[in-house]
């Protein structure tokens, strides 16, 4: 049971983020919602990378008595997560700067008011 808790957390985070992005009216809160989704997906990747009894694949600091490379963990999910975090920071910065400029032009952060382009 205990090993499923991270996956439950992933689903919860994705749904909380989607809720915030869909039903909150403040633009900043929508941005926060997207960030929560991103954290949920990152948590998913990290959870996939966990292997019981595995060690970090660093040859110089192996604990004594480990069989390598069998016991080493292939660090692909961690690498994916790092890439995803970097991309996430870029997206977050871009979204926040857009929100800033939108506030200057529209003088509101309400998503219901940001509807000059419709139909």
């Amino acid at each position: 049971m205990i090993q499923y808790i991270p996956f439950i957390a992933v689903v919860c985070m994705i749904f909380i983020g989607l809720y915030a992005a869909m039903f909150r009216r403040n633009l900043i809160k929508i941005v926060i919602g997207i960030t929560i989704i991103e954290s949920g997906v990152n948590l998913f990747l990290i959870t996939l990378g966990y292997r019981e009894g595995g060690v970090a694949p660093i040859y110089t600091s192996l604990p004594s008595g480990t069989v390598y490379p069998e016991q080493m963990v292939l660090p692909v999910p961690q690498a994916l997560t790092l890439t995803s975090i970097v991309i996430g920071v870029a997206v977050l910065a871009l979204m926040l700067s857009l929100v800033m400029h939108i506030y200057k032009k529209y003088e509101t952060l309400d998503v219901q008011e940001m509807r000059r382009l419709k139909e």
């Binding site: 989607l18 992005a21 633009l27 929508i30 997207i34 989704i37 991103e38 997206v91 871009l94 979204m95 857009l98 929100v99 400029h101 939108i102 032009k105 529209y106 940001m114 000059r116 382009l117």
Partner: peptide, 13 residues
């Protein structure tokens, strides 16, 4: 700006 914000929200999700 509005179009760009809509685009990034949709495509980043």
């Amino acid at each position: 700006l509005e179009a760009a914000f809509k685009y990034i929200v949709i495509s980043s999700v």
